[in-house]
Amino acid sequence: MDTNGNLYTFIYASVLVIVVAAALSFTALKLQPIQNMNVKNEKMQNILASVHIESTAKTANNVFEKYITKSFVVNSKGEEIKGKAAFDINLKQEYKKDTEQRELPLYEATLEDGTIKLIIPLTGKGLWGPIWGYVALESDMNTLYGAVFDHKGETPGLGADINKDWFQKPFTGKTIFEDGKLIGIRVHKGGKGAALAANDTEHGVDAISGGTITSKALEAMIFDCISSYKTYLENNKK
C-alpha cells in the first residue's frame, strides 16, 4: 500500500487524532471524580494544618468535621452572608470582583483545649503560577496561630520551599496589626536571621534566599487577602 499518498495521509491523521482524543477524554472523564476528591481532601488537610492538626488524605474528612466547627461567608463590611457554603467558594474568582461584591469564606476551628481559631484562606500570584495558603488567627484577631502555604509551580529548592515547615513555622506568634493599622507579615530578604537583623521580630519572618520574588509575592498575598477581612477582624476581636 502507498503510505505516502495524500488521501492515505489525510485518513491516517484523522483516525489517529480521533482515536487519541477519544482515549484522552475517556481517561479524563473516568478519573475526574477521584481527582476532585483528592483536591477536596487536600484543601481540608491544608485548612487543618493551619491550626497544627495533622491528617492524611483518608482521615481528612472526619478530622475536618470534628475540628472545623463553623464555616461561613462574610462580605467586605464584615457582615455574614447567609445561605452560602464557604468550602465551595472559588476564592480566585472572588478576588477578581470589586471589593464590595466579594463573598469571603471563613472557617472556625475549635481545638482540644476549647480555644477557637479563625482561619482565613489566601490566594495570590507567585513567580511562575498561583500560590495559596491559610492563616489561623488567635481570638484577638491579631496574633497568628499558624500558617500554611502551597504553590503550583515555584522553583524547586527556592520559591517552592514556601510549603516547607521551616518556612511556615516562624509565622506562628507574629502579629498583623500595629497600633490598629493592618501591616500583615513582612518577609525579610537575606536568608536566615534577616528578620532579626532588621529588628522586626513582631511582624517579620525570613525570606527564602534565592526565592525573593516568591517570598515577596507571599507577603503581598497575605496583606491583600487579610485587608478584605479587615472590618470583620476589627469588629470581632476579643
Binding site: 503510505t3 505516502n4 492515505y8 495521509t9 491516517y12 491523521a13 489517529l16
Partner: peptide, 12 residues
C-alpha cells in the same frame, strides 16, 4: 512503523 506516512511521522 509500517503504517506511518513519512511526511507526517514527526507529528504522529
Amino acid at each position: 512503523r509500517n503504517t506511518i506516512p513519512s511526511r507526517i511521522r514527526i507529528i504522529v
